[in-house]
């Protein structure tokens, strides 16, 4: 069928419609996210009311998830498969330090996740649980310590006595 509109105008209209569709899609996604995150956002609103004063700082988009020398700078976690799943599911509630200083087997991580779900308000992780646990046991494997460890990382210094 032949259009009454000139080609250039048609392109403009199609572009506008695409933009509109895109916007609708965004609203739908945002709405969905809002519903899922409702509880957290309520918490967020509460926290935000406390931390009212915000000021400009140096963080920019590039730095937010910057990787430096194989380390995710914001959390200190090793950059490997599953990193962002761990970052978004774990470090919003507790420090990444709690992850990196604990070295456990898959079984014990799974138990710990269950404990966090039972007592600490962690949500169902679904398929992400396997990704998270694999990331943890691969990048933070448990070390054999035996009944007593060798003294390590000694900073030697001269002592006058």
């Amino acid at each position: 069928m032949e259009s009454n509109f000139p080609t250039s105008l048609r392109i403009v209209i199609i572009r506008a419609m695409l933009k509109l569709a895109g916007l609708l899609l965004l609203i739908l996604i945002a709405g969905g996210v809002y519903l899922i995150r409702d509880i957290h956002l309520k918490n967020a609103a509460y926290e935000a009311s406390i931390a009212k004063t915000v000021v400009e700082d140096t963080f920019n988009e590039e730095e937010w998830d910057k990787i430096e020398n194989g380390i995710h700078v914001r959390t200190g976690l090793i950059d490997a498969e599953g990193l962002m799943t761990v970052v978004s599911n774990c470090t919003s509630c507790h420090s990444a330090k709690l992850i990196t200083q604990n070295r456990m087997s898959a079984e014990r991580w799974n138990e710990t996740i269950k404990w966090m779900q039972k007592t600490q308000g962690l949500w169902e992780l679904g398929g992400n649980q396997e990704i998270i646990v694999n990331y943890l046991v691969t990048n933070y494997p448990s070390k054999k310590k035996g009944r007593r460890m060798i003294l390590e990382n000694i900073e030697w210094y001269e002592l006058e006595n």
Partner: peptide, 13 residues
């Protein structure tokens, strides 16, 4: 500072 922000905003990074 940033991990506190994550709390502020829930989990969606």
């Amino acid at each position: 500072a940033l991990s506190s922000f994550a709390v502020l905003l829930g989990t969606d990074i």
